[in-house]
Write a protein that binds this DNA or RNA. Structure first.
Length: 494
RNA sequence: GCCCCCAUCGUCUAGUGGACUAGGACGCAGCCCUUUCAAGGCUACGACCGGGGUUCGAAUCCCCGUGGGGGCACCA
């Protein structure tokens, strides 16, 4: 629908979990690529060996797959612009940092961590506005610097930030951002271990991988001018920059912390995509939830991925921080569960049921699914709503068998009469069972609530259940009668 | 402390100078439906942070406050 094919990317570092913020950036990037017929790329930013977490890459890939945002190019699928793991691109960064030194945009710095530390302490003592590198090595004669490098001295490469003037960087959702260069620093581009920092690596890779739209979290705004400066130093064309707002914890006060994450989990919620599956959330619901934190939609906010591709526009991205709202997650999850076909829902619900040890046959499950569909917020709610269908026997709490306003013997009488009526029926279908039971309610003078309440607990073992007669139909006459009989003896022994 | 970003119902947002009596969604409350729980339908409650400008006219543009958030590493 749009102009040229866009190339977008998600560039997470394999340092931990895959958060909804990552997922949102992935979604928007994916959407931009899809609607222009372009590509969505996964690049792993693993240049910090100390923070590397084994297995994190797999979590990222699995989470993206689960969401349906499978990258077109990635370390796992490959692609024409690989490798897609930064530690495998060492030479490329070396090459480009050298080029920056040659053109006078960067310089080797031999300052030790100890000196830097001391320098910062002094600056802090002087109460300078902005602690920054003092430029000692920047003033070195380039030839001498080259000699020291050749001699094997340890060094980093720093970017030569202009001391004066301003840098104007343009973000598509925020407009021009003007920063005075004196507040910036001579950032390290290449570390002493020969690996690049994010600043160099990301700019080089985005250029090399022909990324047209860089969408990344607003945490990058402070170093945005640096990035623009680096690109300009290379003489490259800038991508379209998009910095969506960060996501705040539900209270709106700051980013999610470990403690917030734990609190959410206790509540059956999570901001980690790989938790959501196990908690019974479905990708459709999660995607819809994520999409709306930072994307302004006027109405009809229930959307599938395809509908999002159709409706998304980078012009509708919002710049303000958004608080994570789990009630909305629940709402969208339930809504999308209801949009599933019976077959789809049955299939997704099955593992939750079997995991509790139940034997679930597909025929029964297919009959049960329509009964529980509009009651599910998450897939695991099916355990509470449908377990009794798959059990041979149930054990109701005897107290629950006593209807409101009645005593045990009255309730037992109702149960006996119900048993008699049901036993006389040819079969247990909804249509044949309900009329005589209704008639019994009329004639007995008890309320439908009381009579059906007793029957419900007797048959399902619980006070809250899917519709009673539909449930009895699925369970079948024989088992229903057994269960009612059992309820009668429970009541009689009270 | 310094820099940057942001500012419409509790929350996510629509709104791009007059069509705003500020719209939608979540949540909340009530009603309807109903054998329970849901789902669904209807209704209610609910916001332009403050102050100055600009303009015939400002939620919308500008400035200043205030508030919130983010960043100040050889981490990303």
């Amino acid at each position: 629908m749009d102009q040229k094919p866009a190339r977008t990317r998600l560039a997470p570092s394999p340092t931990g979990r895959f958060h909804v913020a990552n997922a949102r950036n992935a979604l928007y990037s994916y959407l931009i690529a899809r609607q222009t017929g372009g590509q969505f790329i996964l690049r792993i930013e693993d240049t910090d060996q100390r923070r590397f977490v084994p297995g994190a890459e797999e979590v990222i890939a699995r989470s993206l797959d689960w969401l349906g945002l499978t990258p077109d190019e990635s370390p796992f699928h490959g692609g024409p612009y690989g490798p897609y793991r930064q530690t495998e691109r060492r030479d490329i960064y070396q090459h480009y940092s050298k080029r920056l030194v040659e053109t006078g945009h960067a310089y080797p710095c031999f300052c030790t961590p100890e000196r830097l530390d001391q320098m910062r302490k002094e600056q802090e003592a002087r109460k300078v506005d902005r602690v920054r590198y003092d430029g000692l090595c920047r003033r070195l004669d380039p030839e001498e610097a080259a000699r020291r490098v050749a001699a094997g001295e340890k060094y980093v490469i720093r970017f030569k930030m202009p001391y004066e003037g301003t840098t104007t960087a343009h973000d598509h959702i925020r407009g021009d951002i003007v920063t005075e260069n004196r507040y910036l620093d001579d950032y390290v581009l290449l570390k002493s271990d020969g690996l690049p920092t994010y600043h160099l690596a990301a700019m080089v890779d985005d250029h090399e991988m022909k990324i047209t739209h860089v969408l990344r979290s607003a945490e990058w705004l402070p170093t945005f001018p640096l990035h623009v400066q680096i690109i300009r130093a290379f003489g490259w064309e800038e991508p379209v920059w998009l910095h969506p707002s960060i996501l705040l914890k539900p209270s709106g006060k700051g980013k999610m912390s470990k403690r917030d994450a734990a609190a959410a989990m206790k509540d059956g919620h999570s901001t980690f995509v790989d938790d959501l599956d196990g908690l019974g959330y479905i990708p459709e619901g999660v995607l819809n939830w994520i999409a709306l934190m930072g994307w302004g939609v006027a109405d009809d906010d229930v959307m599938s991925l395809d509908e999002m591709i159709e409706r998304f526009s980078i012009d509708n991205l919002t710049p303000s921080p958004a608080a994570i709202n789990f009630q909305k997650l629940d709402h969208f999850n339930g809504t999308h569960i209801r949009r599933l076909t019976t077959e789809q829902l049955a299939q997704r619900v099955k593992s939750f049921l079997t995991e509790t040890g139940l034997e679930v046959d597909d025929d029964t499950l297919l009959k049960v699914t329509p009964l529980i569909r509009e009651r599910l917020v998450t897939l695991d709610d099916s355990i509470a709503f449908a377990s009794f269908f798959f059990k041979d026997t149930i054990e109701p709490n005897p107290e629950d068998l006593i209807a409101k306003g009645l005593d045990a013997s009255q309730s037992a009488a109702i149960a006996r009469e119900s048993h008699k009526i049901l036993a006389s029926l040819p079969e247990m279908s909804h249509q044949t069972a309900e009329p005589p039971m209704r008639e019994f309610v009329e004639r007995s003078g008890w309320s439908a609530n009381q009579v059906f309440g007793i029957l419900r607990v007797a048959v399902t073992g619980q006070k809250v259940s899917p519709p009673l007669f539909e449930s009895m139909e699925v369970i079948g006459k024989e088992k229903v009668l057994e269960r009612v009989q059992h309820a009668i003896s429970l009541l009689e022994s009270l």
